[in-house]
Nucleic acid binder design. Sequence first.
DNA 1: CTGAAAGCGCTTACAG
DNA 2: CTGAAAGCGCTTACAG
Lengths: 331, 331
Amino acid sequence: MPARDQRTTITQVANAAGVSIQTVSNVIRGRGRVGEATRERVAKVISELNYVPHPGASSMRSNRTGQLAHPMPPQSFEPTNNINVEFIRGLVAAAATHGYHVVLTRSDGDPEEIAELCRSGRIDGFVFTGMQPDDLRMETAHRLGMPFACFGRTAPDLPQAWVDIHNADGTDEATTLLIDTGHRRIAFLGHESPYFWDAERRDGYLQAMARAGLQSRVALCGSTDKDIEAAARKLLGRGRPSAIVCSSDRLAVALYAEAGRRGIEVGKELAITGFDDWIVGRNLSPALTTVSTDLHDIAGRVVDRFLTELAGPTDAPGEFVPVELLRRGSA
Amino acid sequence: MPARDQRTTITQVANAAGVSIQTVSNVIRGRGRVGEATRERVAKVISELNYVPHPGASSMRSNRTGQLAHPMPPQSFEPTNNINVEFIRGLVAAAATHGYHVVLTRSDGDPEEIAELCRSGRIDGFVFTGMQPDDLRMETAHRLGMPFACFGRTAPDLPQAWVDIHNADGTDEATTLLIDTGHRRIAFLGHESPYFWDAERRDGYLQAMARAGLQSRVALCGSTDKDIEAAARKLLGRGRPSAIVCSSDRLAVALYAEAGRRGIEVGKELAITGFDDWIVGRNLSPALTTVSTDLHDIAGRVVDRFLTELAGPTDAPGEFVPVELLRRGSA
DNA sequence: CTGAAAGCGCTTACAG
DNA sequence: CTGAAAGCGCTTACAG
C-alpha cells in the first residue's frame, strides 16, 4: 500500500518548516498563539507536502472523528420514497462544508446498532431521518451522550433536535390555488398513518376549506397499492369532486391511473395536486402540480443543528422550513 | 460527551478477563495462537462490556480503517439517474457484511479530491460508479496505491477492476421478445454518447434484428429533454415502426408522452421496451416492459472485487452480471 | 509566541 | 500458548 508508506506526517512538516509539531498542530487547528510569519511558513509547507492529518491519530486525543453517521431506515429504500437521494446529496455537501464526512449505515430501527456506533469511536454523532413514532434510536443516542439532529419530528416527549417542513402550509397553499381557480368541490386524499405529517397535511387542507367556507371531504387509505387503488376508484366514482388535494405524489399518481381508466382528463376535467415533487409526478402528462421541499437546504440546516448539538446539547426548539407550490399542468 | 468517557478499552477487557491486552487483540482479530478456554473467556468479557475496538487507534498500527469511500459523481444526482439509491443500499449492506463502513463523498471528477482522500488515512479504498471515458479518478487512486473497484467500465487502457451488466444481452432479449410477438418493423432509440453502454445496447438490438433477418432502424438523440422530444416526434411521425427498443427508460417515457399527444395507444398500437427499470416506467399506464439490473447483487460483487484488490492488486478480468427482461404492459 | 513531554488505544513484532 | 515493549501520529496541558 504505497499510499500509506508515503504518508506525510506532522513531524515531516515540522522539520521542513523548522518548528515543533505542536506549532504545526496549532496552525492546522487555528489554536494557540502562532506568529503570522510562522503560520504562513507552516501553511506553505503543509500545502507543498500535501499534508493531511491522520484522522485516526487525531481522534485519539481530540475525541473528534470528523465523521457523521446517517443511518438509513428501511423505508427510505422503498422506491416510493423519493426524498432520499436529494437529501443525502445535500447532507454530504453540507457536511463537507464543515469538514465532516458522512458514514452511511443501514438501520432497521434496532437501537443496538445505534448503541454500537455510539461506542465505536467512529463518529461524532448522527443525522436521523424517517423516524417512527416509537423510534428508539434517538433515545439511545441521547442516553449514550451522542449528539444528533433529525429531519422530521417524533413524539414530543422524546429527545430530538429537529428540522422539518411546514406540511400544513403546503396543502393549504395547494387547496387555496384550487379554490382561486374556481373549484368548489375539492376533496383530500391522504394516508391512514401514525405520522405527524399526514395529519398536518390534512389539517392544511381543512383549514383552507374552512377559510373559504367550503365543505370538505376527506378520504384516507392504507399504504398498499391495492388500498390506494381502491381509494382512487371510490373517489373518482359517482359524485366525484372537481379537484383533489393529495397528501403525497404517490396518491396523485394512482389518481392519474384511475382517471386514465375512466377516460377522465386530468388537468381539464379533474385537477390534482400532490406533495413531495416525486420524479414520477414530473414525468406524467400533464405534469403534476405539487408541493416541493428544498431537501438540499434542509440537509444544510440539519447539519447546522447537529453542529450546535455537538458544541453542547441544547433545548433549542425545532425549525420549520417553508415549502413551495410548483404549479404544473395538473391544477 | 459521556459516550466517549464511558468508552471500554482493551485494557479494561484484558483486566476483566485476566489476560494481556495482546491476547484480547488476538481474540478479536482471530490471530496468533490463543487457547480455546482463553478465547471463550475473553469473548464473554468483550460481549459483557460491549467492547468495540477504537478504529482510530486500530488504524494507526494496522493501516486499515474499515472504511470504504464511495465518491458520487454529479450525474448520479440527476433525477433521471435511478440507479443510485438501490446501488448505495446494496453497497452499504455488502460492506457491512465484511465489517466495512461506507463513507459517502461528493466528487465532481476532480482527481485532487481523490488524491486527498488517498492521503487522508481515512479509508482503505474506493468504489467508483458513473465513470466518464476520460475519468482520471481511477488513475489517481492507482498511482497512489489505493485499492478500488468499479461498477461499470472505462477506457480499456486505464486501470480498473470492474463489474458491469451485460448491456447487449438486455437489448437483444428485448428485441427478440418483440420479434417473437410478431413485430417486424422494430426501431431502436438510443443516445448519442461516448459511453460504452450506449453502443452495447445498440449492438444487442442490431444483433437480434440481423439474426431474424429483419431490417434495422437506429435513431440517436442528444441528452437534453428537447433533443429527446424531437427524436420521439420524428420516430412516431410518418412511417412509424410498430415497436421501439429504447436504450433507457427515460427515452421510453418520452415516447409515451409523444404517443399520448398523437393518440397512439402504447401496448396496443405501439410496443415499447426500456432499459433500467426506472421508477417512472413502473408507474406509467401501461407499465413499461424493461430490462432490469439487480443493483443489490452488483454492489455485492463490487465489494467482493474491492476486497480482492485490497488483499493485493490483481489483473483479474472484469465480471459481467446478467440482466433480466421484465415483461409488463408496454410490449 | 513556541516547544518538550505525556499519553490517547491499539497492533506489531518479538521474547519467552 | 501468552505477555512486555515499542511505537503508530497526533493533541492536550503545561512550562517557558
